[in-house]
Amino acid sequence: MSNLELKNVKAERFQTTDKKSVKSYISKFGSLLGLLLLCIALTFASSHFLTLKNIMNIARQSAINSLISVGMLLTILTAGIDLSVGSVLALSTCIMGVAVVKWGINPILAMLMCIAIGAFLGFLNGVMLTKLKLPHPFISTLGMKNIARGLALIVTAASPISGFPKAIQYIGAGFIGPVPVSFILVIIVFVLFSIFLNRTAQGRYIYAVGGNLEASKLSGINVEKTLILVYTLCGLMASVGGLVLTGRVNAAFPLAGLDYDLDAIAACIIGGASFMGGSGTVWGTLIGAMIMAVLRNGLNLLGVSADLQTVAIGAVIIAAVYVDVLRRQAEKKAKTQTV
């Protein structure tokens, strides 16, 4: 009896921390705050920044990286990485380009084919990791990065393919009212991924596998299946990003997406995902991708010289992650102090 009383007293000592203070919100939405600050600064710096048209520009310009990043996020959640997304994007869209422009295949069918190819290449990444037991996804996806790029050059004979039908262009270049179709697609995809990660068993397993592989195995989670699914979805999202890119520029080209892997990783990390796996959110990743797009847009608007732009982007990546490190430290401190 006395035991119970003692524990209840102890329990009360912790009650205060459960209340959500303003501070905890700030720490929770650190990257969003960063995005807002960046936007406010740019609004003052350039009168062209805060206009409907420019905002829609940013929405379009961030769409491709956002779509790829949400796939990348899954791999990072499992403490992995996918270096092949740019090449997978190129190969899947180039095959689609050949199919549509050269063979005249139905565009809807071709888009589905594009996504299927992306998913298949991702599936292969997953299989190489789990079944061939390659030591780290760095290896399997680095291999795929080169293979897919090479194949993209082969299928297109190294030339860009242009002249896509309206249906394909619609995804990357169409509008519904003032809003770009590509951005609507981003929102739909992110809502779906948010539901998947937070509200399905398989989604929770992704966090579990990244947080503690051994514990996940011993909790009856099919780790291999989870990893293969993660890489498949990552490849699939790369090709969805490719669809938008193809529609946007009305061309598929074998050298598309050369640095997209790094941009996607940067978006995830800026958005608060951890390379150690097990932590990171879909919405954080969207904010990360937005920060990168806003930054590039802002630097263009301000007419910052080309060399300084490169420096600025690098500095912001480091600063954003550093702010997140500080935030985590503060959070950790706040938590240890309650124990």
Partner: peptide
């Protein structure tokens, strides 16, 4: 046993999430 950097709520369910889905969603 534990996914240390995740919450109590997450850890008590990782072995039983499948069971707690009604249909597709948790």
């Amino acid at each position: 046993g534990l996914v240390l950097d995740n919450t109590i709520d997450f850890n008590v369910h990782i072995a039983s999430y499948k069971k707690s889905s009604n249909g597709l969603l948790l």
